[in-house]
Design a binder for these strands. Structure first.
Lengths: 228, 228
DNA sequence: AAACTTAGTGTCTTTGCGACACTATGTCAA
DNA sequence: TTGACATAGTGTCGCAAAGACACTAAGTTT
């Protein structure tokens, strides 16, 4: 054994491999999508998996997840939260690897340059059209989706998908996409008003051959408030 | 380096120490208490800390937490859930140790034999009278308490503190202790009825010089239901 | 038997949530 | 220029859940 370890390992204190895997969500064409990577190496070569990587010896968990996010998308400063830690003894055939899973939300307008990065090895895939994933990554995505949907009910997390300025119809569409059901326009806007988390910009958004929509912005971008 | 490691460590895959620390809650004398251990060894010798231990090389995370719980309390089969993973690079002066924190709920009647175990080294301490704790354990307890209180609102988790048979007043007292506020008796019972998770046993409980109370039991002991 | 202690019960009001339909304002084509 | 079209924007009513609120019931003790 010739590598460096961050802590001395012995019988009482075994050493573990530690990775952070990140479920990176965005919304594309009215579908909730996650970023997948096609594995080039064994184990699971050729199989789709979550982006992830081994944690650096002096790296905080959050920083490791943020690094994975930045490496794959070039994006930073977006919503990123710890999801759950997966550590079954048999989850990685290489040996004992524990994964601290995170999930991130990326506004759809921040993926412009992503097309360049995308090749055969990286793809955005709708969560309801997932292929078989490597390791236990399918379970991780399910849990992340569930957590995200639950948070819609009691927080303003959906705003983390929005660009700086957006219309109320766009925001409603985000809710509908994540929840997988249609919402009533008037009830949706009534409830939004009670949150008091967005405000009019005074600008209008023109698209297509119809009435323009007011543009809104978050009052406190980057913060997620808990509702009620 | 002469110990066994569960995965080969090298520059790309550093190895980490991995512990499970468990916030063991119970309710004693109308106070929400956690089990603390007085550390006998450095680091933080003489300082109170959460019970915890290094994960075995072939041990699942849940199993490690259950083992810690059983070692300190002799109790098993109670509510035990993963809370959060703490992995700051400087949280343990010995080196890089990542802790997967769990929390457990122990019914107050299952601590009878605990007095024997208790000595200078182990104690139940009310959460609002915590001393300074080792590592980042103070933060872990705060997060666990917050999670527990939040779950009262949307699940039947409080029943996990109850013995097999209990009165409605006892159950209400548990809610009040965790939330830190008084509840209205009639509204409390009305809401309980809608959960449909407990039933009368037909027995009565006599205590003191007053009217006896009906004894109830959970319909499905050991399960926590999500409400609404 | 009177005082004491906790158990147990129902109504009314307020509030949040869901169902529901029409007008407003722009573009485009005839 | 006008009529057709497409999306933006707006308010009421009914119901169900939640909160405020006070008295009677059934034991024990003196």
């Amino acid at each position: 054994m010739n590598g460096e370890t961050a802590v001395a390992a012995n019988r009482d204190r075994p050493a573990f491999g530690l990775t952070t895997d990140v479920v990176i969500f965005t919304i594309r064409e009215d579908a909730l999508c996650v970023l997948l990577v096609n594995r080039s190496r064994e184990p699971f070569a050729g199989v789709w998996a979550l982006p992830g990587g081994f944690l650096g010896p002096d790296e905080a968990l959050n920083d490791g997840a943020a690094r994975v996010l930045a490496e794959k998308t070039g994006v930073s400063g977006v919503f990123l939260e710890q999801l759950f830690t997966f550590g079954g003894p048999a989850r990685d055939p290489r040996g004992r690897v524990v994964s601290v899973a995170y999930y991130a939300l990326v506004p759809y307008n921040r993926l412009d340059r992503m097309a360049a990065v995308e090749g055969d090895r990286v793809a955005w895939v709708a969560v309801d059209e997932l292929p078989e994933l490597a390791f236990d990554h399918g379970e991780i995505v399910r849990m992340a989706h569930q957590r995200l949907a639950a948070k819609l009910d009691y927080s303003t997390i959906a705003l983390q998908f929005m660009p700086e300025r957006f219309t109320l119809s766009e925001l409603q569409s985000v809710y509908e996409t994540i929840l997988g059901e249609q919402l009533d326009k008037r009830n949706f806007r009534k409830r939004l008003r009670t949150f008091e988390c967005i405000e009019e910009t005074g600008e209008m958004f023109r698209a297509g051959k119809h009435r323009p929509a007011k543009l809104f912005r978050m009052k406190q971008p980057g913060t997620v408030e808990i509702i009620k």
